[in-house]
């Protein structure tokens, strides 16, 4: 299925949970926050959140700032 992740179009084997996407991207889920179609997904719900064709995913983390 096709997803938009941080503004980039990506092909991803589905069906799959959000936790699979995080693992596939090589990210530590304890260090990020995720929005799916403008709704925040609580960290505890990554495994239970099924991805769907066309989902808009934003994955963010803390960086340096003033």
């Amino acid at each position: 299925m096709r997803l938009s992740v941080n503004g980039e179009e990506r092909e991803f084997d589905g069906p799959a949970a959000l936790s699979c996407l995080v693992a596939r991207l090589g990210l530590d889920c304890r260090k990020v926050a995720i929005e799916r179609n403008l709704e925040i997904v609580p960290r505890s719900a990554y495994a239970a959140t099924a991805l769907a064709e066309g989902d808009q995913i934003e994955i963010v983390h803390f960086i340096g700032g003033g």
Binding site: N6, G7, E8, E58, I59, V60, F62, G64, G65, G66
Partner: peptide, 12 residues
Amino acid sequence: TVALRRVNLSDP
């Protein structure tokens, strides 16, 4: 203070 930005997917 910290800022929030997209994770760099090309270099996780």
